Simulated scan of single mutants.
Amino acid sequence: MGLRISSCVIALIQRAAAEAAPLEACGLLFGSDGVERASVAANVADDPARRFEIDPAALIAALKAERAGGERVIGYWHSHPSGDATPSATDAAMAAADGKIWVIVAGEALTAWRAGASGLHGRFERVELT
């Protein structure tokens, strides 16, 4: 079963990634049966050219809103400006085995992954996009 994601969400993620390059861009994914919306968050990593860290204030605000009946946070997205759209070793080390979706963009390539205990790419299983 694939993950629904709209072309508008894909365009927003690709545009944000291109604008941030050569730094990594990142943000949150919202939805229920698929990715219905994405937001762009500040990358507050100590080395944003090689890593990403979603601004904790943005993440906390989104989770508080979700608990109050707002949009559900289903995952995260980030870019690999000089790599490919597969999880890196750093991504695998950072990922909690919580089932959240990770979308990774590298140029025009965009892939989705579910964080879990095991998978072909460290802690991730590939999710087909529809």
Rank of each mutant, 00 (worst) to 15 (best):
G122L: 04
D55H: 13
G69W: 11
Y76S: 02
I5H: 01
Y76M: 00
L3Y: 00
K100T: 11
E53I: 10
R15P: 09
E71H: 14
R114E: 10
S88M: 14
V44G: 05
H78V: 14
W102T: 05
R126H: 05
A85N: 14
G107Q: 07
F124P: 07
E19N: 03
F52H: 11
V103A: 04
G27D: 11
R123T: 04
I5L: 02
R15T: 11
A49M: 14
N43K: 12
A61C: 03
R50E: 09
R51V: 10
S88T: 14
S39H: 06
I5T: 03
E24N: 11
A106H: 07
P56G: 01
D46G: 10
A41M: 06
A16T: 02
S39F: 07
H121V: 09
V73W: 06
C26R: 13
R50G: 12
A17S: 15
R126I: 05
G122N: 06
G83A: 14
V103E: 04
H80Y: 13
G34R: 03
W102N: 09
G75R: 07
A106Y: 15
E24V: 05
A16M: 01
E36D: 06
A20H: 00
S6P: 01
I54T: 04
A21C: 03
G69K: 05
V73R: 10
I60S: 03
A96K: 05
I104P: 09
P87V: 15
R114Q: 11
L29G: 01
E125Q: 06
A20E: 06
C26W: 01
G31S: 01
F30W: 05
I74G: 04
R50L: 14
E125I: 10
R72E: 03
D98E: 01
A41S: 12
P22M: 12
A109G: 08
R123M: 05
F30M: 09
A92S: 15
S79T: 12
G119D: 14
A65E: 05
A96T: 00
R126G: 11
E66A: 08
L59N: 15
S79A: 14
I101V: 15
L3F: 00
E71A: 15
F52G: 11
S39R: 07
A85Q: 15
A11Q: 02
A21I: 03
P48Q: 09
E24L: 03
R126T: 15
R50M: 15
L63A: 02
A17L: 02
S7T: 07
L23W: 05
R37N: 12
E71K: 13
L59H: 11
C26T: 12
L3K: 02
G99M: 03
E19C: 09
I74V: 14
S39K: 04
A115P: 00
L59R: 06
C8F: 13
